[in-house]
Structure formats: C-alpha cells, structure tokens
C-alpha cells in the first residue's frame, strides 16, 4: 500500500512538472525583468527545479513502478519482515 501511495505521489509530481513548465498564468504578459521576459525567468527556474526533483527522485525512489515487487521485496526483506507485499 505504501508503494502505491508513493507511486501516485511521484506521478502527480511528474504531471505538475509538465503542466507548469509553461507558465500559463502569465499568458499575454510581456513584463521584462533583467532583460528577459518574466515568463522566461519562470521557465528557467522551473527547469532547474525539474533537475532538482529528478535528482531527488533518483536518490529516494528510483525503481518505483519499474522494478517488480519480487525484486524490491528481496531488497527490503532484509530491512523488515513486511506484509509480504500483498499487492503484486
């Protein structure tokens, strides 16, 4: 169950990363800050954030949804005698 919640959480993060790479809320805006449109600064920040999120994912949750229960179970079996990974 925990795995499942984690999967949904990271999937949501992925969708949000895609959804706001373009700052829709600045649509039509032509405000310029430090020589670049404000919406472009947002994008620059967003790409840096995406890298940070990818890095965090690679450290914390890599393998989620890809490696199958039996192999990840084997990995975690030593740490805790869990619920037997009932899902699949």
């Amino acid at each position: 169950m925990h795995r499942r919640r984690e999967l949904v959480g990271w999937a949501t993060v992925g969708v949000v990363l895609c959804a706001l790479a373009i700052p829709w809320f600045l649509w039509g805006s032509s405000t310029v800050v430090f020589g670049l449109p404000l919406w472009l600064w947002w994008h620059v920040g967003w790409m840096v954030l995406a890298s940070a999120v990818f890095w965090l994912f690679a450290r914390r949750a890599w393998g989620l949804g890809v490696e199958t229960a039996d192999s990840s179970e084997r990995a975690s079996a030593t740490a805790s005698v869990g619920d037997g990974g009932g899902s699949r």
Partner: peptide, 22 residues
C-alpha cells in the same frame, strides 16, 4: 524555448525513466 524545454527537458526526461530505465 518553453516548447523545447517542456519537450526535451521534461517530457523526454520523464520518458528517460519510464521507457529508458525499464
């Protein structure tokens, strides 16, 4: 720049994991 960033930086990045790692 936004289109390319979303396309290559983020969407392809996610596929790098979803398709690539598997």
């Amino acid at each position: 720049i936004l289109v390319m960033g979303l396309m290559d930086g983020i969407i392809f990045g996610i596929l790098w994991y979803v398709v690539g790692y598997k």
